[in-house]
Amino acid sequence: MSLATETRPMTRREWLLSDRPQSRLQARLGRAYMTWRRFSANRLAVLGLLILLGLVFVAAFADLLAPHSPVIGNLASARLLPPGSEGYLLGADDQGRDILSRLIHGSRLTLAVVVLVAIIAAPVGLIVGAVAGYAGGWIDAILMRITDIFLAFPKLVLALAFVAALGPGIENAVIAIAITSWPPYARIARAETLTVRNSDYIAAVRLMGASPARIVFRHVIPMCMSSLIVRVTLDMAGIILTAAGLGFLGLGAQPPLPEWGAMIASGRRFILDQWWVATMPGIAILIVSLGFNLLGDGLRDAFDPRESGQ
């Protein structure tokens, strides 16, 4: 208490860690700083973050980074070159295309898929869950029954069936994956909503005459965000794997797009003699989805130290 009365200027760290924030901004920044400190203490989580920053970087500058064209190969001299060949660091595929260049350009597809699925599925789940939790009664019962029905489905098989009906292609793959991945978000959002719904501050906002929509969007949904972000991050890995699986079965991105799963499928024929054609894209998928898993784990531990068990 005596510290607060001292006139000595606070360091930035003290300002952030103050248990008596003077403004909303300070409180928010302070919380973010604490979260960041917990997060950055976890070396694996930081590694995950670096992997994903790397992915974004590669995707953004693919044109500059890729040494060759991702779709036009050199059939005459580069066909099935092994890794380490001059100019072809990771080797070349059966069309004489540089595998590294294809992987670099493929990162754009991977990133596009996860981002699109996230921005379709997460808001849907969030709104369904928050509305169900806040409204209660029969609205809750119906919405949650629908959610449970989707949860009880085999996700990959359902996505397969959707793509089969919609026709192969990366857009349809995104739609199919999004349709099958919103239910867990709805469950989380509902659970979070139920815990805040009856709290005093929500009652206070209601007394001040806020409309239900305002309460849900301004006060309930922000409370669901942190657990939702964690869950979405952890799900990203699964989304990448599903998208790659669809690509592998020929239902995702169509040739000659350099989608990693489809690249594995096309390399499958040469697995015995030219192992690198199928191996390299698999390593890329593994690294990126590992990055999402590490990041998600770290975020969960940082946002909710109780859950971490560390």
Partner: peptide, 22 residues
Amino acid sequence: GLVGYSVPIFWLALLALLVFYA
């Protein structure tokens, strides 16, 4: 566990075939 969550199963299957069968 983390690698198990992150690896594409069909790819690992291909590699396993290559190593343990071929």
